[in-house]
Amino acid sequence: MNTAPGIQSTSLHFREGSSDKVYQAAIEPKDDGYIVTFAYGRRGNTLTTGTKTPHIVTLQQAQAIYGKLVASKTSKGYKPDGESATPYQQTGREGEDSGIRCQLLNPVDESELQRLLTGTSHCLQEKFDGRRLMIRKQGDTITGINRRGIVVAIPEPIRLAVSLIPYDVLIDGEAVGDTLHAFDLLELDGHDLRERRYIDRHAGLLVTIPQNQSALRWVSTSIDPNDKVESYEESRQTNREGVVFKEVDAPYNPGRPNSGGPQLKFKFVESASFVVIAINSKRSVTLGLYDGDDLISAGNVTIPPNHEIPLLGTVVEVRYLYAFLESGSIYQPVYQGKRHDIPASECATDQLKYKVEAKAA
């Protein structure tokens, strides 16, 4: 723990109705000066991070920026949190392109479930409702990388857990709060494993991750058809987000196939990423999706009081029951928040699940 004079940190919370948000701010030493960092988001989720200082400043300047930041949050209803803040490790490279790309999944139709559950070509895993996060360990340097390949800060518990691995690694997973649910091992001790079978990479993951680490866990995987069916039913009955099917013999191919592919997802709850194309009255915004080169309306969603109204062009996540094929609008939308890790170009109509119309007798 840093005990240098003047170093400060705070954790604030905002609770109202179903809202439970956290905002953390800190003054941290860097080189010959100081920076002011922040982290925010819903309690229990992996937080969005950044800095309020574009360059290194003096301690006096940092304290002024820090004080103004905390005052602005408390004026909006945030209060000091009784819980200690979970620090986020920042390397100074946040926002840089790492050059690494993750493998993205396509959705699978419900009609394909029987084949995937009862066959032996795919294994099954739970789909976690978090943020995609790859972790690279190179010597003493541990770097977080998001789904777009951008360097991001990581929670300190995850960094500490990864630091216990005695080799250089590149792990792919889903971050939920201060825990990384790891599902793939791409590099180990200087060896690139991407061309190896998924089942072999996952086996390597099991022996690489230290045991009894709450911040770093490998994802449980079912291979036998009976186990897959049981895991699928349990996930559905316990209101999990969905399941993922992975071809056991497939290599790791960055990017997303135009359709299908060796890794598929099936979500129990529908959600999609949209672009805000208009701000309406009564805390409502219009959502847009790309249909080819055209940005078309997909309906409106109300922004809850515990969320800031997003600006035009912002990418947001919205849950919904289904979409109408004729209008393209979504039914019963529920705003989930901003998505900083998804570009607007990926907000396309092919994300939507449409209402199945009853056939005429």
Rank of each mutant, 00 (worst) to 15 (best):
T3Y: 04
S11R: 15
R15G: 00
S19R: 09
K21S: 12
Y23F: 05
Y23I: 04
Y23E: 03
A25M: 00
A26C: 07
V36Q: 02
A39Y: 09
A39I: 09
Y40V: 07
G41C: 04
G44S: 07
G44M: 09
N45V: 06
L47K: 08
T49N: 10
P54S: 12
T58Y: 04
T58Q: 01
Y66V: 06
G67P: 02
G67L: 00
T74K: 00
K76Y: 11
D81V: 08
E83Y: 10
S84W: 10
S84T: 14
T86K: 13
Y88R: 13
R93V: 01
G95F: 13
G95L: 13
C102G: 01
R115E: 02
L116H: 05
L116Q: 01
G119M: 05
S121N: 14
H122T: 12
Q125I: 07
E126T: 15
E126K: 15
G130Y: 08
G130A: 06
R136P: 03
K137P: 12
K137H: 12
Q138W: 06
G139W: 03
G139D: 07
D140Y: 14
D140H: 14
T141R: 06
I142V: 07
T143V: 13
I145Y: 05
V152L: 14
R159H: 15
R159W: 15
V162S: 10
S163W: 11
D168W: 00
L170W: 04
I171C: 05
E174G: 04
A175Q: 13
V176F: 08
G177F: 15
A182R: 02
F183E: 02
L185F: 02
L188R: 05
E195S: 14
Y198W: 15
D200V: 05
H202V: 01
A203I: 05
L205Y: 02
L206R: 06
L206G: 07
V207D: 03
V207R: 09
V207Y: 03
S214W: 07
S214L: 05
S214N: 11
A215R: 10
L216I: 02
W218V: 06
P225E: 14
E233N: 07
E234M: 10
E234G: 03
Q237N: 13
R240F: 14
E247Y: 03
V248L: 06
D249A: 13
A250G: 00
P251V: 07
N253P: 01
G255R: 03
G261D: 04
L264H: 08
F266W: 10
E270C: 12
V275A: 08
I277C: 11
I279P: 04
N280S: 07
R283S: 03
D291P: 01
D294N: 01
S297D: 06
G299Y: 08
G299N: 11
V301E: 03
P304I: 04
I309G: 14
V316C: 15
V318M: 02
S329A: 08
Q332F: 04
P333E: 06
Q336L: 06
H340R: 15
H340T: 15
H340D: 15
D341Y: 08
A344I: 04
A348L: 03
L352A: 14
L352S: 10
V356R: 14
E357Q: 09
A358Q: 00
